[in-house]
Design a protein around this nucleic acid. Structure first.
Length: 306
RNA sequence: CGCGGGGUGGAGCAGUCAGGUAGCUCGCGAGGCUCAUAACCUCGAGGUCGGUGGUUCAAAUCCACCCCCCGCAA
């Protein structure tokens, strides 16, 4: 059971393994994007390409779903970013239970958005955890965890891709371990629990009164989508890539203190943020130099005015 | 039929409303200045203005249809 791209490497890994994948469950196709075209989730596209049966219940208690899932008779259910809370009856259905691929080192960052939250928190490292699912969200016993350092250039995109791969490998390892009987579920420590709820678009708005290194983390956590943003003359300006640095003294937060091919330097609450890749609403993403060719930014221009 | 912005020399933009010589900031090439330079000055190359059709003496500009890119909202 999984829905977005994060779950695809895990599904691929299962397909490559010795155990048959009897079916795939993902969220329903949704009207999304420009023009509200109906689009299938990434996992469904992969499953369909591999000829797997796909279930897409709107609600898990839809009358047709339970019989359909039971008919697949899974011995084990693997969940990776499915997007719905599983009720008791599903957790109890497979003989070997349900295991989950979670993109953090539990008990840190329980919830829907562990990857951006790890970046926002300034964590030096994060990872994936394979756990035996319990009713409480992301609180199940840990079977296996694998860490990866968070690089200063990492974005939610790059980190997510890496964790998806790491998660797939850990999943295979965990299943092997379970079959060999050498994996023992370990309860999560009571200390160190944090929560990583879904991010709202508004949380990507850069508050220039905040320190530059914090703003830089927001940029990385929101990249590539939905993107951190500020405003320029009332229009949304997305910031795709930026770097924190020391600020010249005296410039009020949000003020452009330098603009050139080497970046647009904006004063923050502490230090300054050098904008490297930006995108004006309705326009393409551009490097600072290219952006400035058509949108001159005199020093003193203020960003983020409301 | 969700709302909206856009496609103009290699890059980014103006010009479109009030049809009539293709503009700006860069990049590129040549020359000059300079101890020197990514700086500065001069000159230059480079565009069937997304596509098709229509209106017109004349279309980047007006009309119709199509293709592509992007922001918002979900």
């Amino acid at each position: 059971m999984g829905t977005p791209a994060f779950a695809c490497p895990s599904l691929e890994a299962l397909l490559a393994g010795p155990d048959p994948v009897v079916g795939v469950v993902c969220q329903p196709d949704r009207a999304r994007g420009r023009g509200l075209a109906v689009a299938a989730p990434e996992v469904k596209r992969l499953a369909v390409a591999r000829g797997l049966p796909v279930l897409q219940p709107e609600r898990l208690r839809d009358p047709g779903f339970a019989p359909a899932l039971r008919a697949l008779a899974p011995d084990l259910v693997v969940v990776a970013a499915y997007g719905k809370i599983l009720p008791r009856w599903i957790l109890d259905l497979p003989r070997h239970g349900c295991i989950n691929v979670h993109a953090s080192l539990l008990p840190r960052h329980r919830g829907a958005a562990p990857i951006p939250w790890a970046i926002l928190a300034g964590d030096a490292a994060t990872g994936v955890t394979i756990m035996a699912m319990a009713e409480e969200m992301d609180a199940g016993d840990v079977l296996l965890a694998r860490a990866t350092p968070i690089d200063a250039e990492d974005t939610a995109g790059t980190l997510g891709a890496r964790l998806a791969t790491l998660g797939a490998a850990a999943l295979v390892e965990a299943i092997d371990g379970l079959k060999a009987g050498r994996l023992r579920p370990v309860p999560q420590p009571a200390e160190g629990v944090t929560f990583a709820p879904r991010l709202t678009h508004e949380q990507g708005r850069l508050d220039w009164s905040r320190p530059a290194d914090e703003l830089c983390r927001v940029v990385r956590a929101f990249a590539p989508t939905p993107g951190a943003f500020t405003t320029l003359a009332g229009r949304i300006l997305k910031i795709h890539r930026a770097r924190p640095e020391a600020a010249p003294p005296g410039a009020p937060p949000g003020t452009v203190v330098h603009a050139g091919a080497d970046g647009i330097v904006v004063a923050a609450g502490g230090g300054a943020l050098r904008l490297l890749d930006v995108q004006l609403e309705g326009r393409r993403r551009l490097a600072a130099g290219a952006f400035l060719a058509g949108h001159p930014l005199p020093a003193g221009t203020c960003l983020g005015a409301r």
